[in-house]
């Protein structure tokens, strides 16, 4: 069953010099799938994610999530859509400093006006799943980068969204924390069947996906499916990246 359907999506940035960031992107993501998007710098990965996450709107083409095109929704409906259907994980975490870890996590539920009892229950479940029960009372600046990203993931999944979107979730983390975060995402995907889409530079992070889509110069380049072995998939990704002609620094994040 298709969860996300992207149809002929294009984005042109206006201004003095018009710039074509994405051209006719077509792909689908099935329910329960974990898809990575890779490509060299400036290939349009983040633009694509921004279109799907409704942060930015496309010039043409459409995004269908469970059959709904969020770009056609009214402002308030869009807010509700984000609140219920989407979860976000950012490279720089985007946690609110004024709130504790626990409060940050329940934020989507709070905005949705859920009862405190329900919020507490869900918070416990999700915190156990991510191993952050001990730090729920801490403030965001008192915890490590890995803990922050796990907090962000908890916040992104507490309302069981249809689609979890992640933008370079390991970009600000060391290798141990990266591995930890990716394993967490993999477990959530496997156990809860949460559909995920992740934009990344990092071949190691990408190797946790079921499928990786490569983009180059705003167009779909190819895609690869993971076989049995993650190790082999990792090697294939590196080969594909060098074939893509990405700059050498794109490969510098090899940590194995």
């Amino acid at each position: 069953m298709d969860m996300l359907h992207v149809k002929r999506l294009s984005k042109i940035y206006g201004g003095r010099v018009t710039y074509r960031a994405l051209t006719d992107i077509d792909f689908t993501i099935k329910k329960g799938e974990f898809v990575g998007i890779m490509g060299p710098s400036g290939s349009g990965k983040t633009t694509l994610l921004n279109m799907i996450s409704t942060i930015d709107s496309p010039t043409s083409g459409e995004v269908l999530l469970n059959g709904t095109n969020p770009h056609e929704l009214k402002r308030n409906q869009l807010a509700l859509f984000r609140r219920r259907e989407l979860g976000f994980v950012f490279q720089d975490f985007n946690l609110l400093d004024t709130l504790t870890v626990g409060e940050n996590i329940v934020l989507p539920l709070t905005l949705d006006g859920k009862s405190v009892a329900e919020m507490d229950e869900k918070l416990q479940t999700v915190a156990e799943k991510l191993g952050i029960v001990d730090i729920l009372e801490k403030r965001t600046y008192e915890i490590s980068g890995g803990q922050r990203q796990r907090t962000a993931i908890a916040r992104a999944i507490i309302h069981t969204p249809s689609l979890l979107l992640a933008d370079e979730p390991t970009g600000n983390l060391d290798s141990k924390a990266s591995r930890n975060v990716m394993e967490t995402l993999e477990t959530i995907n496997k156990n809860d069947g949460t559909t995920m889409m992740m934009v990344t530079h990092d071949p190691l992070a990408a190797s946790y996906c079921h499928r990786v889509i490569f983009i180059k110069d705003g167009q779909l380049h190819n895609e690869m499916y993971r076989g049995e072995s993650r190790q082999a998939f990792f090697q294939k990704i590196i080969d594909a990246l060098s074939l893509l002609g990405g700059n050498t620094h794109d490969l510098s994040s090899i940590r194995v």
Binding site: S53, I55, R75, N76, A79, L80, F81, R82, R83, R84, L86, F88, N94, L96, T98, L107, P108, L111, D112, R155
Partner: peptide, 15 residues
């Protein structure tokens, strides 16, 4: 930025 994050998580204009 704070409002941006909140809007991302589905805060409505009214909220």
């Amino acid at each position: 930025k704070e409002f941006g994050i909140l809007m991302m998580h589905g805060m409505t204009q009214g909220q």
